[in-house]
Amino acid sequence: MDLKEHIRSIPDFPKPGILFYDISTLLAEPAAWKATVERLAEAIEPYRPALLVGIESRGFLTAAPLALHLGMGFAMVRKKNKLPGKTIKHTYDLEYGTDTIEIQADAVEPGQRVVILDDLLATGGTAAAAVHLLRSVGAEVAAAAFIIELSFLNGRDKLDLPVHTLISYDD
């Protein structure tokens, strides 16, 4: 099954000049979504993670069903002030400013093998920040996986770990 056929492209969203790759149409097609989860499972199983970590917010849609499929736990990396309880945060630079992500302090055990998931890898800034955050709490980040990669933005170059993607757009 060609998963690319189930991705909708929306021009000028969220601002003019941006072409947004929407996974809503993939999620709405059960056979395509099942194939996506199964292919991601095949890609990350060799890393033997104990926990999958989804990056807000579409990374939750990717990581949670995959964790269930693989019989393992799921944790969330979210924007600041979105998680209850004690959190650990990491602030990182954006093209114009900064952003902060957090994880609950007790979400990952020191030495625990994790794989990071999100729907899309673009510039790699948020994924690199998630890797940094997880390592700061003692996680062993084994790999990262994404449904879509915008390879022309070279985001994987910011990640010093194996990166798996199912769909690539080259321009």
Results as ranks from 00 to 15, higher is better:
Asp99Ser: 15
Gly155Ala: 03
His132Val: 02
His132Asp: 13
Gly71Ser: 06
Arg78Cys: 13
Ala28Glu: 14
Leu40Ser: 10
Ala28Thr: 12
Lys79Glu: 09
Ile103Gly: 03
His6Lys: 15
Glu140His: 09
Thr91Tyr: 13
Ala32Ile: 05
Gly124His: 01
Ile55Thr: 03
Val137Pro: 13
Asp99Tyr: 11
Thr25Ile: 11
Lys15Met: 15
Gly85Cys: 06
Glu109Val: 06
Glu38Met: 12
Ile44Leu: 06
Pro110Trp: 05
Phe74Ala: 15
Leu159Ala: 08
Leu70Trp: 11
Glu5Asp: 15
Asp106Phe: 03
Leu161Ala: 12
Leu3Ile: 04
Trp33Ile: 01
Thr126Asn: 04
Ile10His: 09
Leu66His: 10
Val77Phe: 13
Asp2Asn: 15
Ala143Tyr: 00
His69Asp: 02
Gly54Phe: 05
Ile103Lys: 04
Leu94Cys: 03
Gly54Glu: 07
Arg8Tyr: 07
Leu66Trp: 09
Ala139Thr: 10
Pro49Ile: 08
Ile10Pro: 09
Leu94Asp: 07
Leu70Tyr: 13
Ala50Cys: 00
Asn154Gln: 06
Glu42Lys: 12
Asp171Met: 03
Leu121Asn: 01
Val77Leu: 14
Ile88Lys: 12
Ala105Val: 05
Glu29Lys: 02
Val141Phe: 06
Ile103Pro: 10
Gly155Glu: 03
Glu95Met: 11
Pro14Ser: 12
Arg8Asn: 09
Ile148Glu: 05
Gly111Ile: 01
Leu40Asp: 02
Glu5Gly: 08
His69Trp: 13
Phe152Thr: 04
Ala122Arg: 01
Val53Leu: 03
Leu159Gln: 04
Val77Arg: 06
Ala145Gly: 07
Leu26Tyr: 11
Asp119Ser: 08
Ser9Lys: 12
Glu38Asn: 12
Ala35Ser: 14
Leu117Ala: 11
Leu70Asn: 13
Leu26Met: 13
Ile10Lys: 03
Pro110Ser: 00
Thr36Leu: 09
Leu51Trp: 01
Pro110Leu: 00
Gln104Thr: 04
Ser151Phe: 00
Pro16Phe: 03
Ile10Ala: 06
